[in-house]
Design a protein around this nucleic acid. Sequence first.
DNA 1: GGGGGAACTTTGGTATACAGTCTGCCGACG
DNA 2: CGTCGGCAGACTGTATACCAAAGTTCCCCC
Lengths: 232, 232
Amino acid sequence: MDNKSVTAPDFGAPLGATNRSLPEQICDHIRELIIDGTLEPGTWLRERDLAQRLNVSRIPVREALPVLEAEGFVKMVPRRGAMVATLTLREAENLYDIRESLEVLAARLAARQAGHSPPAALLECLERGRAAAEAGDAHGLEAANAAFHGEILKLSDNPLLQSIMKPIKGRVRWLFHLLPSRDPHAQLVKHQELCDAIASGNPDLAAAVAYAQIVRTRESTLGVLRTLLPES
Amino acid sequence: MDNKSVTAPDFGAPLGATNRSLPEQICDHIRELIIDGTLEPGTWLRERDLAQRLNVSRIPVREALPVLEAEGFVKMVPRRGAMVATLTLREAENLYDIRESLEVLAARLAARQAGHSPPAALLECLERGRAAAEAGDAHGLEAANAAFHGEILKLSDNPLLQSIMKPIKGRVRWLFHLLPSRDPHAQLVKHQELCDAIASGNPDLAAAVAYAQIVRTRESTLGVLRTLLPES
DNA sequence: GGGGGAACTTTGGTATACAGTCTGCCGACG
DNA sequence: CGTCGGCAGACTGTATACCAAAGTTCCCCC
Protein backbone atom coordinates (compact mmCIF):
# COMPACT_ATOMS: atom_id res chain seq x y z
CA MET A 1 0.00 0.00 0.00
CA ASP A 2 2.98 2.29 0.39
CA ASN A 3 3.33 4.96 -2.17
CA LYS A 4 6.96 4.65 -3.13
CA SER A 5 6.98 7.81 -5.13
CA VAL A 6 8.93 10.46 -3.29
CA THR A 7 6.77 13.24 -4.57
CA ALA A 8 3.11 12.36 -4.30
CA PRO A 9 1.62 13.87 -7.43
CA ASP A 10 -2.01 14.55 -8.09
CA PHE A 11 -3.44 11.45 -9.67
CA GLY A 12 -6.57 13.28 -10.69
CA ALA A 13 -10.10 12.07 -10.24
CA PRO A 14 -10.31 8.63 -8.65
CA LEU A 15 -11.88 7.02 -11.71
CA GLY A 16 -15.23 7.89 -10.31
CA ALA A 17 -18.02 6.81 -12.62
CA THR A 18 -16.70 3.60 -14.05
CA ASN A 19 -15.49 2.19 -10.77
CA ARG A 20 -18.69 2.34 -8.82
CA SER A 21 -20.43 -0.95 -8.54
CA LEU A 22 -23.61 -1.61 -10.41
CA PRO A 23 -25.79 -2.07 -7.30
CA GLU A 24 -24.53 1.26 -6.01
CA GLN A 25 -25.41 3.05 -9.22
CA ILE A 26 -28.82 1.41 -9.31
CA CYS A 27 -29.39 2.37 -5.70
CA ASP A 28 -28.47 6.00 -6.30
CA HIS A 29 -30.58 6.15 -9.41
CA ILE A 30 -33.73 4.81 -7.79
CA ARG A 31 -33.19 6.92 -4.69
CA GLU A 32 -33.07 10.07 -6.78
CA LEU A 33 -36.25 9.05 -8.58
CA ILE A 34 -37.97 8.59 -5.25
CA ILE A 35 -36.68 11.81 -3.72
CA ASP A 36 -37.64 13.98 -6.65
CA GLY A 37 -41.09 12.44 -6.76
CA THR A 38 -40.87 10.62 -10.09
CA LEU A 39 -41.59 7.39 -8.27
CA GLU A 40 -44.60 8.09 -6.10
CA PRO A 41 -45.21 6.44 -2.73
CA GLY A 42 -47.02 3.16 -3.13
CA THR A 43 -45.45 2.33 -6.47
CA TRP A 44 -44.39 -1.29 -6.73
CA LEU A 45 -40.80 -1.86 -7.76
CA ARG A 46 -40.48 -5.21 -9.48
CA GLU A 47 -37.08 -6.74 -9.78
CA ARG A 48 -37.40 -8.02 -13.32
CA ASP A 49 -38.98 -4.78 -14.45
CA LEU A 50 -36.23 -2.64 -12.97
CA ALA A 51 -33.54 -4.97 -14.27
CA GLN A 52 -34.89 -4.78 -17.78
CA ARG A 53 -35.36 -1.02 -17.65
CA LEU A 54 -31.85 -0.44 -16.37
CA ASN A 55 -30.42 -3.05 -18.69
CA VAL A 56 -28.87 -5.17 -15.98
CA SER A 57 -29.67 -8.55 -14.49
CA ARG A 58 -31.73 -9.21 -11.40
CA ILE A 59 -28.75 -9.75 -9.12
CA PRO A 60 -27.57 -6.12 -8.82
CA VAL A 61 -31.17 -5.01 -8.40
CA ARG A 62 -31.69 -7.57 -5.66
CA GLU A 63 -28.72 -6.09 -3.87
CA ALA A 64 -29.81 -2.49 -4.32
CA LEU A 65 -33.32 -2.82 -2.95
CA PRO A 66 -32.41 -3.88 0.61
CA VAL A 67 -30.11 -0.88 0.82
CA LEU A 68 -32.97 1.40 -0.10
CA GLU A 69 -35.12 -0.33 2.47
CA ALA A 70 -32.50 0.22 5.16
CA GLU A 71 -32.49 3.89 4.21
CA GLY A 72 -36.26 4.03 4.52
CA PHE A 73 -37.12 4.83 0.93
CA VAL A 74 -38.66 1.50 0.18
CA LYS A 75 -40.66 -1.06 2.06
CA MET A 76 -40.07 -4.68 1.21
CA VAL A 77 -42.94 -7.10 1.62
CA PRO A 78 -41.94 -10.77 1.74
CA ARG A 79 -42.78 -12.51 -1.51
CA ARG A 80 -44.42 -9.38 -2.86
CA GLY A 81 -41.47 -7.19 -3.59
CA ALA A 82 -40.55 -3.61 -2.83
CA MET A 83 -42.89 -0.66 -2.65
CA VAL A 84 -41.92 2.99 -2.55
CA ALA A 85 -42.46 3.99 1.07
CA THR A 86 -44.90 6.63 2.21
CA LEU A 87 -43.61 9.44 4.38
CA THR A 88 -45.86 9.97 7.33
CA LEU A 89 -46.07 12.79 9.82
CA ARG A 90 -44.94 10.40 12.54
CA GLU A 91 -41.82 9.56 10.58
CA ALA A 92 -41.08 13.19 9.97
CA GLU A 93 -41.26 13.81 13.72
CA ASN A 94 -39.04 10.82 14.40
CA LEU A 95 -36.60 12.14 11.86
CA TYR A 96 -36.45 15.49 13.60
CA ASP A 97 -35.86 13.81 16.94
CA ILE A 98 -32.84 12.08 15.48
CA ARG A 99 -31.55 15.20 13.78
CA GLU A 100 -31.81 17.15 17.01
CA SER A 101 -29.37 14.66 18.47
CA LEU A 102 -27.02 13.86 15.63
CA GLU A 103 -26.64 17.16 13.86
CA VAL A 104 -25.99 18.77 17.20
CA LEU A 105 -23.35 16.15 17.82
CA ALA A 106 -21.85 16.79 14.41
CA ALA A 107 -21.65 20.52 15.07
CA ARG A 108 -20.09 19.91 18.47
CA LEU A 109 -17.43 17.58 17.08
CA ALA A 110 -16.79 19.86 14.14
CA ALA A 111 -16.18 22.78 16.47
CA ARG A 112 -13.81 20.63 18.50
CA GLN A 113 -11.82 19.89 15.36
CA ALA A 114 -12.06 23.39 13.96
CA GLY A 115 -9.61 24.59 16.54
CA HIS A 116 -6.86 22.66 14.78
CA SER A 117 -7.73 23.47 11.20
CA PRO A 118 -9.91 26.41 10.26
CA PRO A 119 -12.88 25.24 8.20
CA ALA A 120 -12.03 26.79 4.88
CA ALA A 121 -14.22 24.27 3.07
CA LEU A 122 -17.24 25.46 5.05
CA LEU A 123 -16.73 29.03 3.95
CA GLU A 124 -16.36 27.91 0.39
CA CYS A 125 -19.69 26.05 0.49
CA LEU A 126 -21.30 29.11 1.98
CA GLU A 127 -19.94 31.22 -0.83
CA ARG A 128 -21.18 28.78 -3.44
CA GLY A 129 -24.61 28.85 -1.85
CA ARG A 130 -24.65 32.63 -1.87
CA ALA A 131 -23.73 32.71 -5.54
CA ALA A 132 -26.41 30.18 -6.41
CA ALA A 133 -29.01 32.09 -4.39
CA GLU A 134 -28.23 35.34 -6.17
CA ALA A 135 -28.41 33.59 -9.52
CA GLY A 136 -31.79 32.16 -8.53
CA ASP A 137 -30.38 28.67 -9.05
CA ALA A 138 -32.48 26.60 -6.66
CA HIS A 139 -30.81 23.37 -7.63
CA GLY A 140 -27.36 24.81 -7.11
CA LEU A 141 -28.40 26.17 -3.74
CA GLU A 142 -29.61 22.79 -2.64
CA ALA A 143 -26.33 21.24 -3.76
CA ALA A 144 -24.36 23.86 -1.87
CA ASN A 145 -26.42 23.32 1.25
CA ALA A 146 -25.89 19.58 1.03
CA ALA A 147 -22.18 20.16 0.58
CA PHE A 148 -22.19 22.46 3.61
CA HIS A 149 -23.67 19.80 5.84
CA GLY A 150 -21.37 17.25 4.29
CA GLU A 151 -18.39 19.39 5.23
CA ILE A 152 -19.54 19.68 8.82
CA LEU A 153 -19.77 15.92 8.93
CA LYS A 154 -16.34 15.56 7.38
CA LEU A 155 -14.97 18.02 9.89
CA SER A 156 -16.50 16.07 12.76
CA ASP A 157 -14.08 13.30 11.82
CA ASN A 158 -16.30 10.45 12.93
CA PRO A 159 -16.83 7.96 10.10
CA LEU A 160 -19.50 6.16 12.04
CA LEU A 161 -21.48 9.35 12.42
CA GLN A 162 -21.07 10.03 8.72
CA SER A 163 -22.39 6.62 7.78
CA ILE A 164 -25.38 7.04 10.07
CA MET A 165 -26.15 10.50 8.77
CA LYS A 166 -26.06 9.49 5.12
CA PRO A 167 -29.52 7.91 5.00
CA ILE A 168 -30.84 10.60 7.34
CA LYS A 169 -29.76 13.30 4.94
CA GLY A 170 -31.48 11.47 2.11
CA ARG A 171 -34.73 11.37 4.00
CA VAL A 172 -34.46 15.02 4.95
CA ARG A 173 -34.01 15.87 1.28
CA TRP A 174 -37.05 13.77 0.48
CA LEU A 175 -39.04 15.67 3.06
CA PHE A 176 -37.93 19.06 1.84
CA HIS A 177 -38.88 18.18 -1.71
CA LEU A 178 -42.46 18.01 -0.51
CA LEU A 179 -42.36 21.53 0.83
CA PRO A 180 -42.78 24.79 -1.02
CA SER A 181 -39.33 26.20 -1.64
CA ARG A 182 -37.92 27.95 1.38
CA ASP A 183 -36.46 31.41 1.63
CA PRO A 184 -32.90 31.24 0.27
CA HIS A 185 -31.76 34.21 2.26
CA ALA A 186 -32.88 32.76 5.58
CA GLN A 187 -31.01 29.56 4.84
CA LEU A 188 -27.83 31.45 4.10
CA VAL A 189 -28.08 33.45 7.31
CA LYS A 190 -28.59 30.26 9.28
CA HIS A 191 -25.64 28.53 7.70
CA GLN A 192 -23.47 31.58 8.22
CA GLU A 193 -24.40 31.57 11.89
CA LEU A 194 -23.63 27.90 12.26
CA CYS A 195 -20.39 28.26 10.37
CA ASP A 196 -19.29 31.06 12.68
CA ALA A 197 -20.15 29.01 15.74
CA ILE A 198 -18.15 26.06 14.50
CA ALA A 199 -15.22 28.22 13.46
CA SER A 200 -15.15 29.70 16.94
CA GLY A 201 -13.93 26.33 18.16
CA ASN A 202 -16.39 26.36 21.04
CA PRO A 203 -18.20 22.99 21.00
CA ASP A 204 -20.95 24.04 23.38
CA LEU A 205 -21.72 27.15 21.38
CA ALA A 206 -21.80 25.24 18.11
CA ALA A 207 -24.07 22.63 19.63
CA ALA A 208 -26.42 25.26 21.01
CA VAL A 209 -26.65 27.06 17.68
CA ALA A 210 -27.27 23.86 15.76
CA TYR A 211 -29.92 22.79 18.23
CA ALA A 212 -31.72 26.11 18.12
CA GLN A 213 -31.76 26.10 14.35
CA ILE A 214 -33.15 22.60 14.04
CA VAL A 215 -35.85 23.23 16.63
CA ARG A 216 -36.86 26.37 14.80
CA THR A 217 -37.12 24.71 11.38
CA ARG A 218 -38.80 21.74 13.02
CA GLU A 219 -41.73 23.85 14.10
CA SER A 220 -42.30 25.53 10.78
CA THR A 221 -41.63 22.44 8.71
CA LEU A 222 -43.89 20.14 10.66
CA GLY A 223 -46.55 22.80 10.61
CA VAL A 224 -46.64 22.69 6.83
CA LEU A 225 -46.28 18.92 6.68
CA ARG A 226 -49.28 18.48 8.94
CA THR A 227 -51.40 19.56 6.03
CA LEU A 228 -49.56 17.43 3.48
CA LEU A 229 -48.81 14.07 5.06
CA PRO A 230 -50.94 11.29 6.47
CA GLU A 231 -50.87 11.15 10.27
CA SER A 232 -49.16 7.78 10.36
CA MET B 1 -18.00 -31.38 1.20
CA ASP B 2 -14.23 -31.52 0.91
CA ASN B 3 -12.96 -28.64 2.96
CA LYS B 4 -9.31 -28.16 2.20
CA SER B 5 -8.92 -24.89 4.04
CA VAL B 6 -6.05 -25.15 6.49
CA THR B 7 -7.59 -22.98 9.17
CA ALA B 8 -11.22 -23.94 9.50
CA PRO B 9 -13.14 -22.19 12.31
CA ASP B 10 -16.15 -24.02 13.60
CA PHE B 11 -19.19 -22.67 11.83
CA GLY B 12 -21.65 -24.59 13.94
CA ALA B 13 -24.93 -26.01 12.78
CA PRO B 14 -25.84 -25.52 9.11
CA LEU B 15 -28.64 -22.99 9.43
CA GLY B 16 -31.78 -24.70 10.60
CA ALA B 17 -34.91 -24.09 8.60
CA THR B 18 -36.89 -21.15 9.91
CA ASN B 19 -39.26 -18.65 8.44
CA ARG B 20 -36.67 -15.89 8.42
CA SER B 21 -34.96 -15.10 5.17
CA LEU B 22 -31.71 -16.82 4.38
CA PRO B 23 -29.57 -13.68 4.05
CA GLU B 24 -30.84 -12.55 7.42
CA GLN B 25 -29.90 -15.83 9.06
CA ILE B 26 -26.49 -15.82 7.42
CA CYS B 27 -25.95 -12.26 8.53
CA ASP B 28 -26.87 -13.03 12.14
CA HIS B 29 -24.77 -16.15 12.14
CA ILE B 30 -21.61 -14.50 10.87
CA ARG B 31 -22.16 -11.49 13.12
CA GLU B 32 -22.26 -13.71 16.17
CA LEU B 33 -19.09 -15.48 15.06
CA ILE B 34 -17.37 -12.12 14.76
CA ILE B 35 -18.67 -10.74 18.04
CA ASP B 36 -17.70 -13.77 20.06
CA GLY B 37 -14.27 -13.81 18.51
CA THR B 38 -14.48 -17.06 16.55
CA LEU B 39 -13.74 -15.09 13.41
CA GLU B 40 -10.76 -12.94 14.20
CA PRO B 41 -10.15 -9.50 12.70
CA GLY B 42 -8.33 -9.75 9.40
CA THR B 43 -9.89 -13.06 8.42
CA TRP B 44 -10.94 -13.17 4.80
CA LEU B 45 -14.54 -14.16 4.21
CA ARG B 46 -14.87 -15.73 0.78
CA GLU B 47 -18.28 -16.01 -0.74
CA ARG B 48 -17.91 -19.51 -2.14
CA ASP B 49 -16.31 -20.74 1.03
CA LEU B 50 -19.05 -19.32 3.26
CA ALA B 51 -21.73 -20.55 0.92
CA GLN B 52 -20.36 -24.07 0.95
CA ARG B 53 -19.88 -24.11 4.70
CA LEU B 54 -23.37 -22.82 5.39
CA ASN B 55 -24.83 -25.03 2.70
CA VAL B 56 -26.39 -22.24 0.69
CA SER B 57 -25.61 -20.64 -2.63
CA ARG B 58 -23.55 -17.52 -3.17
CA ILE B 59 -26.46 -15.14 -3.63
CA PRO B 60 -27.72 -15.05 -0.03
CA VAL B 61 -24.14 -14.70 1.14
CA ARG B 62 -23.60 -11.81 -1.25
CA GLU B 63 -26.63 -10.12 0.23
CA ALA B 64 -25.54 -10.70 3.82
CA LEU B 65 -22.02 -9.32 3.53
CA PRO B 66 -22.94 -5.73 2.60
CA VAL B 67 -25.22 -5.62 5.62
CA LEU B 68 -22.37 -6.65 7.84
CA GLU B 69 -20.24 -4.02 6.21
CA ALA B 70 -22.85 -1.34 6.88
CA GLU B 71 -22.86 -2.47 10.50
CA GLY B 72 -19.10 -2.15 10.64
CA PHE B 73 -18.22 -5.78 11.28
CA VAL B 74 -16.68 -6.37 7.92
CA LYS B 75 -14.72 -4.41 5.39
CA MET B 76 -15.35 -5.14 1.76
CA VAL B 77 -12.55 -4.68 -0.70
CA PRO B 78 -13.60 -4.47 -4.34
CA ARG B 79 -12.79 -7.66 -6.19
CA ARG B 80 -11.07 -9.10 -3.15
CA GLY B 81 -13.97 -9.91 -0.92
CA ALA B 82 -14.84 -9.21 2.68
CA MET B 83 -12.47 -9.12 5.62
CA VAL B 84 -13.42 -9.18 9.28
CA ALA B 85 -12.90 -5.61 10.44
CA THR B 86 -10.48 -4.56 13.14
CA LEU B 87 -11.82 -2.53 16.04
CA THR B 88 -9.59 0.42 16.69
CA LEU B 89 -9.42 2.78 19.61
CA ARG B 90 -10.56 5.58 17.35
CA GLU B 91 -13.65 3.65 16.42
CA ALA B 92 -14.41 2.88 20.02
CA GLU B 93 -14.25 6.58 20.79
CA ASN B 94 -16.47 7.38 17.82
CA LEU B 95 -18.91 4.78 19.02
CA TYR B 96 -19.08 6.38 22.44
CA ASP B 97 -19.68 9.79 20.90
CA ILE B 98 -22.69 8.37 19.10
CA ARG B 99 -23.97 6.54 22.13
CA GLU B 100 -23.75 9.67 24.21
CA SER B 101 -26.19 11.22 21.79
CA LEU B 102 -28.51 8.43 20.85
CA GLU B 103 -28.90 6.51 24.07
CA VAL B 104 -29.59 9.76 25.80
CA LEU B 105 -32.21 10.48 23.20
CA ALA B 106 -33.70 7.02 23.69
CA ALA B 107 -33.91 7.55 27.45
CA ARG B 108 -35.51 10.95 26.96
CA LEU B 109 -38.12 9.66 24.56
CA ALA B 110 -38.77 6.62 26.72
CA ALA B 111 -39.41 8.83 29.73
CA ARG B 112 -41.77 10.94 27.66
CA GLN B 113 -43.74 7.81 26.77
CA ALA B 114 -43.50 6.28 30.22
CA GLY B 115 -46.02 8.76 31.50
CA HIS B 116 -48.74 7.07 29.46
CA SER B 117 -47.83 3.45 30.13
CA PRO B 118 -45.68 2.40 33.05
CA PRO B 119 -42.68 0.43 31.82
CA ALA B 120 -43.52 -2.98 33.22
CA ALA B 121 -41.31 -4.66 30.64
CA LEU B 122 -38.31 -2.72 31.92
CA LEU B 123 -38.84 -3.97 35.45
CA GLU B 124 -39.18 -7.48 34.17
CA CYS B 125 -35.84 -7.29 32.34
CA LEU B 126 -34.24 -5.91 35.47
CA GLU B 127 -35.60 -8.84 37.45
CA ARG B 128 -34.34 -11.33 34.91
CA GLY B 129 -30.92 -9.73 35.06
CA ARG B 130 -30.90 -9.91 38.84
CA ALA B 131 -31.79 -13.60 38.75
CA ALA B 132 -29.09 -14.34 36.18
CA ALA B 133 -26.51 -12.40 38.19
CA GLU B 134 -27.31 -14.32 41.37
CA ALA B 135 -27.10 -17.59 39.47
CA GLY B 136 -23.72 -16.52 38.13
CA ASP B 137 -25.11 -16.88 34.59
CA ALA B 138 -23.00 -14.40 32.64
CA HIS B 139 -24.66 -15.24 29.35
CA GLY B 140 -28.11 -14.80 30.82
CA LEU B 141 -27.08 -11.50 32.33
CA GLU B 142 -25.86 -10.23 28.99
CA ALA B 143 -29.14 -11.30 27.38
CA ALA B 144 -31.13 -9.54 30.07
CA ASN B 145 -29.09 -6.38 29.68
CA ALA B 146 -29.59 -6.43 25.92
CA ALA B 147 -33.31 -6.93 26.48
CA PHE B 148 -33.32 -4.00 28.90
CA HIS B 149 -31.85 -1.65 26.34
CA GLY B 150 -34.14 -3.10 23.72
CA GLU B 151 -37.12 -2.26 25.88
CA ILE B 152 -35.99 1.31 26.33
CA LEU B 153 -35.76 1.59 22.58
CA LYS B 154 -39.16 0.04 22.13
CA LEU B 155 -40.56 2.44 24.69
CA SER B 156 -39.04 5.40 22.87
CA ASP B 157 -41.43 4.58 20.05
CA ASN B 158 -39.19 5.79 17.25
CA PRO B 159 -38.64 3.06 14.67
CA LEU B 160 -35.96 5.10 12.94
CA LEU B 161 -34.02 5.35 16.17
CA GLN B 162 -34.42 1.62 16.70
CA SER B 163 -33.07 0.83 13.27
CA ILE B 164 -30.10 3.11 13.80
CA MET B 165 -29.33 1.68 17.20
CA LYS B 166 -29.39 -1.92 16.05
CA PRO B 167 -25.91 -1.93 14.48
CA ILE B 168 -24.63 0.29 17.27
CA LYS B 169 -25.70 -2.23 19.86
CA GLY B 170 -23.95 -4.96 17.92
CA ARG B 171 -20.71 -3.04 17.91
CA VAL B 172 -21.00 -2.27 21.60
CA ARG B 173 -21.41 -5.96 22.31
CA TRP B 174 -18.35 -6.65 20.16
CA LEU B 175 -16.39 -4.14 22.17
CA PHE B 176 -17.52 -5.52 25.50
CA HIS B 177 -16.56 -9.02 24.47
CA LEU B 178 -12.98 -7.81 24.35
CA LEU B 179 -13.12 -6.63 27.94
CA PRO B 180 -12.73 -8.62 31.10
CA SER B 181 -16.19 -9.31 32.48
CA ARG B 182 -17.62 -6.38 34.36
CA ASP B 183 -19.08 -6.29 37.83
CA PRO B 184 -22.65 -7.66 37.55
CA HIS B 185 -23.83 -5.80 40.64
CA ALA B 186 -22.70 -2.41 39.32
CA GLN B 187 -24.56 -3.03 36.08
CA LEU B 188 -27.74 -3.85 37.92
CA VAL B 189 -27.52 -0.74 40.04
CA LYS B 190 -27.00 1.39 36.95
CA HIS B 191 -29.93 -0.13 35.15
CA GLN B 192 -32.13 0.24 38.21
CA GLU B 193 -31.21 3.91 38.38
CA LEU B 194 -31.96 4.44 34.69
CA CYS B 195 -35.20 2.51 34.97
CA ASP B 196 -36.33 4.71 37.86
CA ALA B 197 -35.48 7.84 35.96
CA ILE B 198 -37.45 6.73 32.94
CA ALA B 199 -40.39 5.59 35.04
CA SER B 200 -40.48 9.01 36.66
CA GLY B 201 -41.70 10.36 33.34
CA ASN B 202 -39.25 13.24 33.50
CA PRO B 203 -37.42 13.34 30.14
CA ASP B 204 -34.68 15.69 31.31
CA LEU B 205 -33.93 13.58 34.34
CA ALA B 206 -33.81 10.38 32.30
CA ALA B 207 -31.54 12.02 29.77
CA ALA B 208 -29.20 13.29 32.46
CA VAL B 209 -28.98 9.91 34.13
CA ALA B 210 -28.33 8.12 30.84
CA TYR B 211 -25.68 10.65 29.90
CA ALA B 212 -23.90 10.41 33.21
CA GLN B 213 -23.83 6.63 33.03
CA ILE B 214 -22.41 6.49 29.54
CA VAL B 215 -19.73 9.05 30.30
CA ARG B 216 -18.74 7.09 33.35
CA THR B 217 -18.44 3.76 31.56
CA ARG B 218 -16.76 5.53 28.67
CA GLU B 219 -13.86 6.54 30.84
CA SER B 220 -13.28 3.14 32.37
CA THR B 221 -13.91 1.20 29.19
CA LEU B 222 -11.65 3.27 26.98
CA GLY B 223 -9.00 3.11 29.66
CA VAL B 224 -8.88 -0.66 29.39
CA LEU B 225 -9.21 -0.65 25.61
CA ARG B 226 -6.23 1.66 25.28
CA THR B 227 -4.10 -1.30 26.26
CA LEU B 228 -5.91 -3.75 23.98
CA LEU B 229 -6.64 -2.03 20.71
CA PRO B 230 -4.52 -0.48 17.99
CA GLU B 231 -4.62 3.32 18.02
CA SER B 232 -6.31 3.55 14.66
C1' DG C 1 -74.27 -13.72 -6.54
C1' DG C 2 -70.80 -16.11 -3.98
C1' DG C 3 -67.31 -19.68 -3.23
C1' DG C 4 -63.63 -22.60 -5.00
C1' DG C 5 -59.96 -23.33 -7.57
C1' DA C 6 -56.85 -23.01 -11.54
C1' DA C 7 -53.63 -20.13 -13.95
C1' DC C 8 -50.56 -16.42 -13.66
C1' DT C 9 -47.26 -13.48 -11.43
C1' DT C 10 -43.49 -12.54 -8.57
C1' DT C 11 -40.16 -13.27 -5.28
C1' DG C 12 -36.73 -16.47 -2.84
C1' DG C 13 -33.23 -19.39 -3.83
C1' DT C 14 -30.02 -22.50 -6.66
C1' DA C 15 -26.74 -23.80 -10.21
C1' DT C 16 -23.68 -22.51 -13.67
C1' DA C 17 -20.88 -19.87 -16.67
C1' DC C 18 -17.79 -16.29 -17.96
C1' DA C 19 -15.11 -12.00 -17.91
C1' DG C 20 -12.28 -8.77 -15.44
C1' DT C 21 -9.03 -8.06 -12.11
C1' DC C 22 -6.05 -8.69 -8.24
C1' DT C 23 -2.23 -11.55 -6.20
C1' DG C 24 1.68 -14.12 -6.06
C1' DC C 25 5.26 -16.47 -8.14
C1' DC C 26 8.79 -17.52 -11.30
C1' DG C 27 11.90 -16.71 -14.60
C1' DA C 28 14.54 -13.63 -17.63
C1' DC C 29 17.24 -9.72 -18.18
C1' DG C 30 19.91 -5.85 -17.02
C1' DC D 1 21.39 -9.16 -7.09
C1' DG D 2 17.45 -6.79 -7.95
C1' DT D 3 13.79 -5.61 -10.84
C1' DC D 4 10.63 -6.01 -14.51
C1' DG D 5 7.32 -8.71 -17.14
C1' DG D 6 4.45 -12.19 -17.82
C1' DC D 7 1.93 -16.32 -16.52
C1' DA D 8 -1.26 -18.89 -13.77
C1' DG D 9 -4.55 -19.15 -10.21
C1' DA D 10 -8.17 -17.26 -7.35
C1' DC D 11 -12.01 -14.60 -6.49
C1' DT D 12 -15.50 -11.36 -7.31
C1' DG D 13 -18.99 -9.08 -10.47
C1' DT D 14 -22.50 -10.08 -13.45
C1' DA D 15 -25.53 -12.72 -16.56
C1' DT D 16 -28.64 -16.49 -17.56
C1' DA D 17 -31.64 -20.23 -16.78
C1' DC D 18 -34.41 -22.69 -13.72
C1' DC D 19 -37.41 -24.30 -9.82
C1' DA D 20 -40.36 -23.93 -5.74
C1' DA D 21 -43.44 -21.44 -2.82
C1' DA D 22 -46.74 -18.02 -2.11
C1' DG D 23 -49.83 -14.38 -3.28
C1' DT D 24 -53.22 -12.47 -6.79
C1' DT D 25 -56.60 -12.55 -10.18
C1' DC D 26 -60.16 -14.04 -12.39
C1' DC D 27 -63.21 -17.28 -14.25
C1' DC D 28 -66.27 -20.98 -13.84
C1' DC D 29 -69.54 -23.53 -11.60
C1' DC D 30 -72.83 -24.14 -8.12
